[in-house]
């Protein structure tokens, strides 16, 4: 289990306590600047909190060896930076760095899981936005982490690619990984997450089932927008007003 205990970091995050289970998708939602990405980085061990701590299977994350932490937690940042025009296979292979092996089987499995086998030798610069997003996620999967922490992985993707990527993440959760996503799109969180944590001004507002955490009253209070849900569970659409 991955757990945050009383995390505080400057004015960005205040006393956040939350725990995450393997085999589930948890969405972290909130307005811009609410502290979502900060929480994700703290969970990934990339920032140190002023107070509080993160634990992985009961052990303090900050006491864990950086390589072991990297083997357990795969982090997908929002930026999607790729400095050199490497081939997709080499990009995905970077996910094996914490293991210090070639990991050919894991790389092939990650390429196949994200339908990238045919593009394995293509340079990153010649990928479309959707293909690039899949390749970056495949890099995380190639590391075979137990935890996948992704910051806005669906940003800048069209609807079809968003759904495709979410189905890959769902498959990862079904095979035992714990998935934590920062999401801006409340409908995607509502329909695809098992649980939602809403953060505002650095503090947890609600943490619970999607239907409860993204209740129209919460949306109005946190985002300042009157809205209501349409449709059936699993196929909800957010209507404004």
């Amino acid at each position: 289990m991955l757990a945050a205990q009383d995390l505080t970091l400057g004015a960005r995050l205040r006393d956040v306590t939350a725990s995450f289970a393997l085999g589930t998708i948890t969405a972290i939602c909130g307005p811009n600047g609410s502290g979502k990405s900060t929480l994700l980085k703290l969970l990934a061990g990339l920032e140190r909190p002023d107070t509080g701590f993160v634990t992985l299977d009961g052990a303090r994350l900050d006491a864990l060896d950086a390589r072991r932490r990297a083997q357990a937690i795969g982090y997908l940042p929002q930026s999607g930076e790729v400095a050199w025009d490497v081939a997709v296979r080499d990009l995905v292979g970077l996910g094996r760095l914490p293991h210090r092996d070639r990991g050919a089987a894991a790389i092939t499995a990650a390429l196949e899981a994200l339908d990238l086998a045919a593009l394995a030798d293509r340079p990153v610069s010649r990928l479309s936005g959707g293909e690039r997003a899949r390749a970056l996620l495949a890099r995380v999967l190639a590391g075979e982490p137990r935890w996948i922490l992704a910051d806005e992985p669906l940003a800048a993707l069209d609807l079809g690619h968003q759904l495709a990527l979410l189905s890959h993440l769902r498959r990862a959760a079904e095979t035992g990984a714990g998935v934590v996503l920062v999401l801006h799109d409340l409908a995607l969180a509502m329909n695809h997450a098992d649980r939602v944590i809403v953060i505002d001004q650095g503090a947890v507002v609600v943490d619970g089932r999607c239907e409860d955490a993204l209740d129209h009253r919460v949306i109005e209070r946190v985002w300042g927008v009157p809205a209501h849900w349409l449709g059936e569970p699993g196929a909800r659409a957010l209507a404004l007003g």
Binding site: G45, L46, P77, S79, A83, L94, L97, G143
Partner: peptide, 16 residues
Amino acid sequence: DALVLGEETARSLGIA
């Protein structure tokens, strides 16, 4: 090699 993906991701890959 890890820095190909940026500083933050390099650290997430266990690079000090």
